[in-house]
Design a protein around this nucleic acid. Structure first.
Ligand SMILES: [Mn+2]
Ligand SMILES: [Mn+2]
Ligand SMILES: [Zn+2]
Ligand SMILES: [Zn+2]
Lengths: 155, 155
DNA sequence: TTTGTTGTTGATAATGATTACTAAAAATAC
DNA sequence: GTATTTTTAGTAATCATTATCAACAACAAA
């Protein structure tokens, strides 16, 4: 599934505003992450970027993913399957299928109010929160009752 | 902060029921995790266990943490700071202080109902869910307005 | 208790993911 | 254009975790 491609000029301007140079590799890395909703790993992004830049270095991919995440152009999340990147920087939750390993976006609407409810207790100042659901996606439920897979390949 | 020490005989019985032998190292590893609420890393557990078993191997600590987690004697969680273990196997959420890195338990009461709300949509069968809060704990708020630390040492 | 079987351990090598390093190349400023 | 500054590619190094395996310890049958 492909999401809308980020408009290059707009991204360029924002990158510049943050003092980031516009290198071919940086732009393509960002485009690759924005062009998928698969919550890709660094290795996945590397494979995709190499289609367009066969000589790109894995280190360059890591370097830029980390930096672009730090600057807010994409999101970085760690879960049991490792570190993944998300071009969708709007607030949303996730559903991970324990059978196929796919990670689906879930509108935050369902969990709105969670933060407010916790904020009042214990003197914690809550700046952010994350909700993760685990279960079986529609496709996997239809395909029969196989039990959850243990070793999920990281794509 | 120390939580109640697991009663050795009871644990012994349960371990046996699961076909796990009662080795000195296995029991002490479990005790160490149950004796702290710091959500320790494997390295932290290793250091603690060595106080009582100076010749224990790091591999033994990993092996048993993973197995004890798989059998349900403790919980394993992955987050941006890495893999951590939790002796508290009751359902509960977590608050991570972005200033000091400490992870606090949060009663699930505050987020009850979250799962039910999501279960109805998209054909997902929700088996489990996790809520993570991020912010500043009471201690860190008092200590002044330093901005969140980036590199948190893993204890 | 002795003995036999089988699971577990300690030591260390291997792996996989990520980061550090650095000379060369590219982007930007003048 | 030339000068200045960043970034890159390639690769070595690091870090967390897992695999391997001979020696050992737990358990149970005798
Ligand atoms: Mn997402
Ligand atoms: Mn906990
Ligand atoms: Zn699925
Ligand atoms: Zn704190």
């Amino acid at each position: 599934m492909i999401t809308k491609n980020t408009s290059a000029p707009a991204v360029d301007a924002t990158l510049r505003a943050w003092g980031l140079r516009l290198t071919r590799q940086r732009r393509i890395i960002l485009e690759v992450v924005h062009a998928t909703d698969a919550h890709p790993t660094a290795a996945f992004v590397y494979r995709r970027v190499r289609r367009r830049l066969p000589r790109v270095s894995l280190a360059t991919v890591y370097r830029n993913l980390r930096r672009l995440a730090a600057e807010g152009f994409l999101a970085e999340r760690a879960d049991p399957s490792g570190v993944r990147f998300d071009g969708n920087t709007a607030p949303h939750d996730h559903f991970t299928c324990v059978a196929c390993g796919r990670i689906y976006d879930v509108p935050t609407r369902a969990t709105r109010g969670v933060r407010a409810r916790i904020a009042v207790r214990s003197g914690f100042e809550v700046l952010n929160h994350r909700v993760e659901f685990y279960g079986r996606c529609g496709a996997c439920r239809r395909q029969g009752g196989r039990s959850p897979v243990k070793g999920q390949r990281r794509s």
